[in-house]
């Protein structure tokens, strides 16, 4: 399934709204100016995403995982490779994690950042749909991409789609790149796209 240019634009804009909130929250939190950018949004059937993600993320990833439910439901995951996770932690906490390990404190920081990002993004969807989307408490998993995806996709049985949002953090002259993956059932995706169309119409009016 491919998004039309219009859908893609609308989706990007919507996500940007959410990201603006997340960036503001992160800037407040750290006292550094942080901006978030969405260079690319794409949609794929779930069977394809592993291959696609493996192209950009190798080895271990730190994944922040949150389940959301409501009129649309699914799984939202922030994926950062090890270096990105370490750099993000160092930039946010002013620490230099010299040993190259994600210790307990660093894992929590990544979880909180993922939480802020996922909440902002899904909150924007909720606002759009004028419904309440509720979330579980996020959890962090450090593993290879394959295992991370497997632990998520076993849950749903209906045909699922994954919205892959390439995400870039800018802060203190550094860039950290990651991927936000939102896995939705076909019904939820249809609802989302439909609501997106209506939202655009309203906006244009």
């Amino acid at each position: 399934m491919e998004l039309t240019a219009t859908q893609q634009d609308a989706l990007t804009e919507l996500i940007n709204i959410g990201y603006a909130r997340a960036a503001a929250a992160l800037s407040d939190l750290t006292g550094h100016r942080i901006s978030l950018e969405v260079p690319e949004v794409a949609i794929h059937v779930i069977s394809e995403i592993k291959t696609r993600l493996l192209r950009v993320i190798k080895d271990e990833v730190a994944s922040v995982n949150q389940v959301f439910s409501g009129p649309i439901n699914g799984n939202a995951i922030l994926l950062l490779d090890r270096e990105a996770a370490l750099l993000l932690n160092n930039l946010l906490t002013d620490r230099d994690q010299a040993q190259g390990k994600l210790d307990g404190a660093a894992r929590e920081v990544i979880t909180e950042v993922g939480n802020i990002l996922l909440n902002a993004c899904l909150g924007a969807f909720g606002n759009l749909l004028k419904v309440q989307v509720t979330f579980t408490v996020p959890y962090l998993q450090v593993d290879n991409v394959d295992k991370v995806l497997r632990s998520i996709t076993v849950q749903g049985s209906e045909l699922e789609y994954a919205l892959i949002i390439h995400t870039r953090f800018h802060m203190r002259a550094s860039n950290v790149s990651g991927y936000l993956v939102i896995i939705l059932g076909v019904t939820s995706l249809k609802t989302l796209l439909e609501e997106l169309r209506k939202w655009e119409e309203r906006e244009l009016r």
Binding site: D28, L29, T30, Q66, G70, N89, L92, T93, R95, A105, A106, E108, V109, T111, E112, N115, I116, N119, G123, G126, Q132, V133, T134, F135, T136, V137, P138
Partner: peptide
């Protein structure tokens, strides 16, 4: 310490994590 927002958002269904390193 600007942490009340997390409680308010919880009422809207959001769950959040506050890490030691940042708070």
């Amino acid at each position: 310490r600007n942490l009340a927002g997390n409680f308010e958002r919880a009422l809207k269904g959001e769950a959040s994590v506050l890490s030691t390193a940042l708070h």
